[in-house]
């Protein structure tokens, strides 16, 4: 129970830290990283929740959700980074033209 609470509790802390960073910092890259940290916190909680004692096997449903979530997070991050890169290129072009 102690280890389970610690693992999930770290997830809650990561989520809150990520949310704070997401709200406070303006640069897009930092926001993307903050979103990923929030996601890691959620994964931590889901994995901790799957634990059902040392004798029973862990609940496979939250584990599958985490696996799904990782792939969605990676693809969303890739898309966000590409958007950010294009935005930066556009800013550079704008100042070059002016």
């Amino acid at each position: 129970m102690g280890a389970q609470f610690l693992f999930g509790g770290v997830g809650v802390v990561l989520f809150v830290l990520g949310l704070w960073s997401f709200l406070v910092h303006a640069p897009l890259l930092r926001k993307v990283i903050a979103l990923n940290i929030m996601g890691s916190g959620v994964f931590h909680v889901l994995i901790a929740v799957a634990y059902r004692g040392d004798t029973a096997p862990p609940d496979p449903v939250p584990h599958a959700l985490v696996l799904t979530g990782i792939v969605v997070a990676v693809s969303a991050t890739a898309l966000a980074l590409t958007f950010g890169g294009r935005l930066m290129d556009m800013d550079k072009d704008g100042t070059d033209d002016a």
Partner: peptide, 17 residues
């Protein structure tokens, strides 16, 4: 956010127990 975090930890603790 600290308050929200404490609330979440409390909910999590209750859910585990």
């Amino acid at each position: 956010l600290t308050l929200i975090g404490i609330a979440l930890l409390g909910i999590y603790w209750l859910a585990l127990n």
